[in-house]
Amino acid sequence: MSSRPLIRPDLKHPMQRILYWGIGAVLLSIIFWAGFTAGGILAYMNEGSHRPSDAAVVLGAAVQGENPSPVFRERIEQAVRLYKDGTVRHLIFTGGSRDSSTPTEAWVGRQYAVSHGVRPEHILIETKSVITRENLLYSLEIGKKEGYRTYTIVSDPLHMKRSMKMASELGMDAVPSPTETTAYRSWRSKIPFLVRETVMYMGYTLKGWN
Rank of each mutant, 00 (worst) to 15 (best):
N135W: 02
R75P: 06
P178Y: 04
M164C: 07
H159D: 14
Y204R: 14
P103L: 11
D10M: 01
R110Q: 13
L27T: 10
S155R: 06
S101T: 15
E141T: 08
G39Q: 11
L206V: 13
G208H: 12
V130L: 15
M202L: 15
H159K: 11
L42E: 09
V108N: 04
R51L: 10
K190S: 05
I123F: 01
G109W: 03
A79R: 03
K144L: 14
L137N: 01
G96A: 05
A38W: 02
S115G: 09
L194S: 10
E134D: 12
D99E: 12
L91F: 01
T94H: 05
I142S: 07
T181N: 14
L11F: 06
G40T: 09
G39D: 09
I7S: 13
H159V: 11
W187I: 08
K190W: 07
L27C: 13
R81H: 10
V26I: 15
E169D: 13
T127W: 00
S2A: 08
K161H: 11
T179D: 08
S163A: 15
W209G: 03
R119L: 10
R98Y: 00
W21F: 15
V88C: 05
F193N: 11
S97P: 03
A43D: 12
D85T: 09
S97V: 02
A183C: 08
L6Y: 04
S49E: 09
Y148L: 10
T132P: 06
F72N: 07
L6R: 12
A34T: 12
R162W: 05
S100I: 10
A106W: 01
L158H: 06
T181K: 13
T181P: 04
L82Q: 10
P103D: 13
I123P: 02
T150G: 05
R89K: 15
D156P: 04
T94P: 00
S53F: 03
I7L: 12
P103E: 12
L140A: 08
K161T: 02
P9E: 13
G40N: 14
R81C: 03
S2P: 13
V26H: 02
E47I: 03
V80D: 07
S177D: 10
E180C: 00
H122P: 00
V108F: 01
E180F: 04
